[in-house]
Each structure stands twice: as structure tokens, then as C-alpha cells.
Design a protein around this nucleic acid. Structure first.
Lengths: 192, 192, 192, 192
DNA sequence: CATGAATGAGCCTTCATTCAT
DNA sequence: AATGAATGAAGGCTCATTCAT
């Protein structure tokens, strides 16, 4: 797809992405000059590889988005439609809580990289499919649309963020919050 | 509590806050120089009244926080504990969706003004009381603690934000999302 | 017209303009950061007074433009229309040769300061009047329009610049070149 | 003179010059990286062929300079010395107006390529010869020296540039301006 | 108290040039 | 020879904050 990079270029690319990863994990805002300094490369090198901070952020987020899409596709093969949706949403929230690069990418209205647009589209489409199966099985509130999935997952992740705590706590909180929401999403007798 | 301001100082204070309110409503970032210019006062005057941008933001948010606390206290007098909690949470989310000054204040770990700390504390305590009554009535999930209320409301508001749409749409979305979450929060047979 | 500046602000304004004047005379490009450094003021101060390098350049050029306009208006009162035009054009070229700030301002299609636009307009209008009088007296080539005056004067000044030499040489060259051109502009028997 | 290039090197050379030509015609500043990209060659290749942007610019201008020299030499064989000079100067101005690569090369005090220096020298010498013949015939102002020809032609071209207009307008303006100047250059009774 | 001029750190971005591959 | 990745100096601009008037 993309032309393979020269060996030295690839090394710099890796360094830059690794530095960005670390900065994001620390919550430090991504500044390309700063990234360059920490990666031990010139500013120009960073700009050559990543035209904007968003492009770098999305690059950092890409593997995680890919994993989510893969997982969602596998979930589609599961027997229990509700279970499959539930499982997909858990993964989605966990990923956002564990990886700070995802939330801003998920919430952004426009993408810097085409690859990101593809992945977000793929994610939406997997979500739509999982939701459709669950709805057909009568397992889900009828007023929930596929356009709500991403916002709700972002909201849960944000709630976890506001709650705070150690990384381990956050995972726990995420599970509790999502479980609660899912209970509300699940079709109940009164919707029958 | 605070020394009453001289009449002209009070007029400046009002102008500054009004300008800040307008900027926040437009989504323009609060820059004190900019606020000063628009309010027709010097930068120094803005700094005299508001040591930091956060202090100004919190000042803008204050009336709304006060209204929420008041409403919560009234809700405490209601007969149906679950209804009261529900109603309080609706107000909380609606306020955040309608007033962009609230979310950052609610999510901030530290406050610029003591008054803000008081109000946030009061809000938490009303929430705790409402939740306690509802829990005593067996109306809520047992794993929900009062430390979860604020994060969850912030999360819902954030989800609404990510979903997007016109102001009217947002109110609608907020209602749907909160109704869904509340269904999950409400005690169900399996918790009984 | 303009609010009078505070004493300290006026001092900085003067310093900045003086530095700019010197840089222009040396042929150094005007860079606001650089000007700030040399004037011993902060960058922000320069930006406060002059939003762009062009604004600073035009400010430096203003007194000279004003003097040209004044001179042109006096020339209009002279008895001999051709002499008056000639005299005005000599001054115009001399000014450009002596003051490097003028050429770029004269040649620019758009102005940074309204004052500059006024002055350029005034200059054009004086030129038009002088040319009109000379044409009415049958003293000038009929194919010359007032829209040609500024370009031709800029051209002469540029020719002097390309020729080079010491400042004194340049004045001399300017006189020779303009005298030559004027001979061509002057109505001759064959136009009669 | 120069070692003949390998065939592929020659192809690159041609591409680079063609791209530079196009950029100059559009008024886009010549940036070697940019040129390389558009020519589909590496930056290093551009640098191998042209050590500096000026060298590339001069290379682009070379054919036109050569044509001017040729034309001037032919003019020297003409019968009417004044006519010959006139004709040469018209060509010179037309060329500058039509080809944006010439003015900066003509006005530059130092050249990047020896070939450019030769050509400019040749041009000056042809001009000197043409002027000498015209002066001997008593056809030109006695105070005009051959060192004035290039500056005056640059000045006319610059005046045309300041006047502006479409390419066709410019040719027209150039003719008018030069005709006017030539009238001034031509010997008149008072010089006799 | 009010004013608003001044400050300057901080961030962003471009581009001529070098040099490893 | 050709390539194009890397470099980093250079310049631009903003904005929170201070302080003389």
C-alpha cells in the first residue's frame, strides 16, 4: 500500500511514534517540536512524517483501532447477538480507557489521515451490524441507533476519566459504568 | 461574604462576566486580553477581578451551580426517592448541555475559587443524600456510589457533545441517553 | 485624529520607527523580531504598534509621502504648467532615490494602512491635475495618461538603483534619467 | 565546453529546466525542493546540476540572453545607426516584459554562472557598439553612456510591471514607455 | 482602582542544504 | 549519478501576565 520506508527513515518513524505514545500516555499535549527534541531528530523530520499533531496522534491510535475492528468482526460470528454487542462495547471502552490516544480520535469530526477515516468507518459499520443483530433478536432498546454507539462509549470513557484513580481502578470503573449502561440498553419487559 | 464593590467596580465586574458568558456560549476560548477588549475595560481590571481565566470561568458557572444545588435540595423534600434522584440528574445533565461553562468546571480536579469548591461540595452532598434515600428505598443498583454521580453526568453530557446536532437535538439526545442510563441504574429484580 | 500615545508608548514607537528607518536605509529586510531586538523592546510591543512589516514600512514612508503631496499642491499654483509638472516629477524621483522606503510602498497594489491609501490617492490626484494642466497647455505627449506617472517614476528610480553608485552619484543619475524621459514626454513639433 | 551529459542526466537536466521555466512564468518562487518534486527527481539531482537557485534561474534565462546578443549583433549590420539602436532596445524591453527570468538576472550585481557573466558582458558590448555608432551619427543625447542602457531598459520593464495589466497590455505599455524614452534619447536640435 | 503598554517565553512552520543509501 | 531523508537555523505570531502611569 504505502511505499516501504528506507531503513533509517523507518527507525526515525518508530522513534517518533514511540515518543508520541509516551507523551500521550503521560497526558502531555503533542507538540511536534517537542516530539522532535525527545526523539533526537530534527523538527523537519517530524514534519516530513507527520504534517500535523493530529496525523501523529492518529498514527499512534491506528493499531488500537485496527484491533477493535478485528475484534468486532469476530464478535459478529458469535451465536448470541446481545452477548456479541456487549462484548464489543466492553472492548471499545476498555481500549479508550487504557489508551489515551483513542478518545480524541474517536471524538474528532474530521480526520487527518485517510486510514483513520477508513478505520472509523469500519468501526461504525461493525457496530451497526452488531446492533442490528441484537435489535433483530429483540435484545435492545428500540430507540437506540447505531449513531449512538460511538458517543455513548466516548461518554463512558470520559466518565471514567472524571472519576479518576489508578489505571487498575479505571478498568474497574469502566466495567461498572458500562455494565450499568448496558443494563439500560438491554431490552426489558416494559419494552416488550 | 465579600466586601461590597464600589458602584463602578461592580459595573465593570458585570460587564466582564457578561462578555465571558457570551464568549463561552459561542464556544470562543476565554482569553483575558480579549475579554477586556470586548468589555471595554483594561486588562488589569480583568486581572484585578479574576486572577486567572479559570476564576472567570467559574464565576460564570456559579449561578448555574447554585441553581442546581437549590433544585437538589428541593428534590430532597419530594415523596418518591427514585423520582427525586432521577429528576435531579436530569437537571444536572440538561444544565451541562445547555451551559458550556459547567463541564470544564465540573471535570476540573482543583478549583480557582473557594466558592466553586463549596458549591461542588454542596452538589456532591445533595447527590449523596438523594442517592442514599433512593438506595434505602431499594430503588438503585447497590454498586453505585455517590462518587459516581458527577462522573456519570459528565459522561452523558460528553456523549451528547460527541453526538452533536443543534441545541434542540442535544436536549433530546441528553434525555434519551440519561433515560437509558437511569434504566440501568434503577434496581431491577435481579438485584432484589 | 489618532489618540495621543502615552509618553512611554510614544518613546517606543519612535525607537521602533527609527530602527526601521535605519534598516531600510541599509537595505536590510524589515523583520519585526529583528526590529524589536534592535530597538530594545519586546516583540509584542512591535506587533502592538505595527501589525505587519508593511504597516511599519508605510509608517516610515509616510512623512515623505506627505511632503510630496504638499509639494505637488504648491506646484499646482505655479504659472508654467510644464515647469510645474517637471518640478513635481523631479521631486518624486529624488525622494524615491533618497528614501528606500518609498519604492515598495509606491509599487504595492494594496496598502496596510488607510493613511497610506489616502496619501497615494492624494498623490495620484495631484499628478492628474498637474498633468491635466500641462496637457491643456499642449506641453505634453498626448498618449501619456495620469496612470502612467507613478509607474514611470518608479521605473526611473529603479533604473537609478540598477545603475548603482554612491548616494551622490544616484542623485545625479536620477536627474539625467528623468531629464531624458521628460524630453520624451514634452510635446515636440511632430506631435503638434 | 562542458562535458557532455549522459543521456539520462541530460533528460533530468531538461526536466528540471522545464519545470523552472514554468514556475517562473507563473510567478512562483523557485525553490529547489519544490522543483525537484515537480520534475520527478530527487533534490540531490537538482543540486548536482544547479548549485544554487540563482544558477537555475540563470540557466532558464540563458537562451533568451543568447537571442538578445544575436539580435544585437545583427542590428550592428544595419544601415541606420539610430534605427538599429532603437530596434535593439525594443527587443531588450520586450524580452524582459515577456520573460520574468530576465529582470532579476539583469539586475543582479554578481552572477552564479560564468556563462551568464559572458552573456551579460556580450550584451553590454553590443550595446556599447550600437550606442557608439548612433552617437557618431549624432543621433543620441551626448550625456548618455553605454553604462546607462541596461539600467534604463530595466527601469522601463519595471515601470511596465508597476503599471500592471494583462500580458498583452504590458507589451503595449512597454512600447509606449520605450517610445517616449527614446524620444528623449534621440538627439534634438538643442543638442546639435 | 483602572488602564493598557510592555514583555517574552513558547509554539509553529518553512526551506536551503547536506549526506547516507 | 540519483535519491530523498534528515537537518536545524530562521522567522513568524500569540497570549498570559506584569507594572508604570
Amino acid at each position: 500500500m504505502t511505499t516501504p520506508l528506507r531503513k533509517d527513515a523507518a527507525r526515525n518513524w518508530d522513534r517518533i511514534v514511540a515518543v508520541a505514545r509516551a507523551l500521550i500516555d503521560q497526558g502531555t499535549p503533542l507538540q511536534l517540536n517537542d516530539v522532535a527534541g525527545r526523539a533526537g531528530v530534527g523538527v523537519g523530520t517530524v514534519y516530513r512524517h507527520f504534517a500535523t499533531p493530529e496525523a501523529l496522534l492518529e498514527t499512534v491510535a491506528t493499531p488500537c483501532l485496527e484491533a477493535l475492528v478485528d475484534h468486532g468482526r469476530q464478535a459478529l460470528t458469535g451465536a448470541d447477538p446481545w452477548r456479541a454487542l456487549e462484548c464489543f462495547l466492553f472492548r471499545t471502552v476498555e481500549a479508550q480507557v487504557a489508551d489515551a490516544s483513542l478518545s480524541p480520535v474517536a471524538a474528532a469530526a474530521t480526520d487527518a489521515l485517510p486510514r483513520t477515516t477508513q478505520l472509523k468507518e469500519a468501526l461504525r459499520s461493525v457496530g451497526t451490524a452488531l446492533l442490528g443483530r441484537a435489535r433483530d433478536a429483540g435484545a435492545v432498546r428500540p430507540d437506540l441507533t447505531s449513531a449512538d454507539l460511538v458517543p455513548l462509549m466516548c461518554g463512558i470513557a470520559y466518565a471514567v476519566h472524571v472519576h479518576g484513580g489508578t489505571p487498575a481502578d479505571r478498568i474497574d470503573t469502566a466495567h461498572r459504568y458500562l455494565a450499568t449502561l448496558l443494563e439500560g440498553l438491554h431490552a426489558t419487559p416494559e419494552h416488550a
